[in-house]
Simulated scan of single mutants.
Amino acid sequence: MNTRADQLKAIERLLNIMDDLREKCPWDRKQTLESLRHLTIEEVYELGDAILDNNLEEVKKELGDVLLHIVFYSKIGSEKKVFDIADVANSIGDKLIDRHPHIYGDVKVKDEDEVKKNWEALKLKEGKTSVLEGVPKSLPAMVKASRIQDKVAGVGFDWEQDSQVLEKVNEELNELSIEVKEKNHDKIEAEFGDVLFSMINYARFLGINPEDALERTNKKFIKRFKFLEQNTKAEGKDLNQLSLEEMDVYWEKAKLKE
Rank of each mutant, 00 (worst) to 15 (best):
M247L: 15
V195A: 05
F221Y: 10
K181R: 15
N55Q: 11
Y45R: 13
L166I: 11
I51T: 09
D98L: 05
D162E: 09
V152A: 00
G93Q: 06
V44P: 01
L39P: 00
R37W: 15
S74I: 12
N55F: 09
H185I: 12
R216Q: 06
Y45P: 00
D84W: 01
E252K: 15
G207D: 05
I222T: 07
V169G: 05
D158L: 06
E34L: 11
K108T: 14
V59I: 14
A50I: 14
E175P: 11
S146G: 00
G105V: 06
K128Y: 10
E179M: 13
S146K: 01
L122C: 01
G77F: 08
S243W: 04
E57M: 00
V143A: 12
T129P: 02
V143T: 09
L33V: 13
F205M: 10
N118W: 12
I208A: 01
I148F: 12
S78F: 01
L52H: 09
P210N: 02
I103L: 14
V82K: 03
E171L: 11
H100Y: 07
R204I: 08
A203V: 00
E42Y: 08
D49E: 15
L39H: 00
E58C: 05
L124F: 05
K108M: 08
K108P: 04
P136M: 06
P210L: 01
V143Y: 01
S138A: 07
P26S: 03
E229D: 06
K9S: 12
L21T: 00
Q164P: 02
E229L: 13
S74M: 11
D238Q: 08
P101Y: 05
A190V: 09
L132S: 11
G207S: 05
W251T: 03
K128G: 00
V249L: 05
E58L: 12
R147P: 00
D20H: 13
E114P: 12
E120H: 10
N90G: 02
E112M: 07
K95A: 08
E172P: 13
E126Q: 14
T40H: 08
A254M: 04
V165K: 00
E172V: 10
E43M: 07
R4S: 02
K257W: 02
E126A: 10
K30V: 01
E120D: 07
Y45T: 09
E211K: 14
L139S: 07
K237L: 13
E189N: 07
I11F: 12
G207T: 04
I178F: 06
R22S: 11
K9I: 01
G93P: 02
F205V: 07
E211D: 10
K183C: 08
E172I: 11
K125T: 10
D113R: 15
E258R: 07
S74V: 13
I41F: 08
I178V: 15
K181N: 11
K116E: 10
K144S: 15
R224V: 02
L244G: 04
H100N: 15
I222F: 06
N231L: 04
H185K: 14
E167H: 08
N201C: 05
G48H: 03
S35W: 02
K81Q: 13
K151Y: 05
S35T: 11
T40V: 12
D162K: 14
L206M: 14
E189S: 10
E246L: 03
V44W: 01
N218P: 06
D84K: 05
Q241Y: 04
K257N: 08
I11C: 06
D113V: 09
W119I: 06
I17H: 12
M18W: 01
S78C: 02
L15V: 14
D150F: 06
E62Q: 15
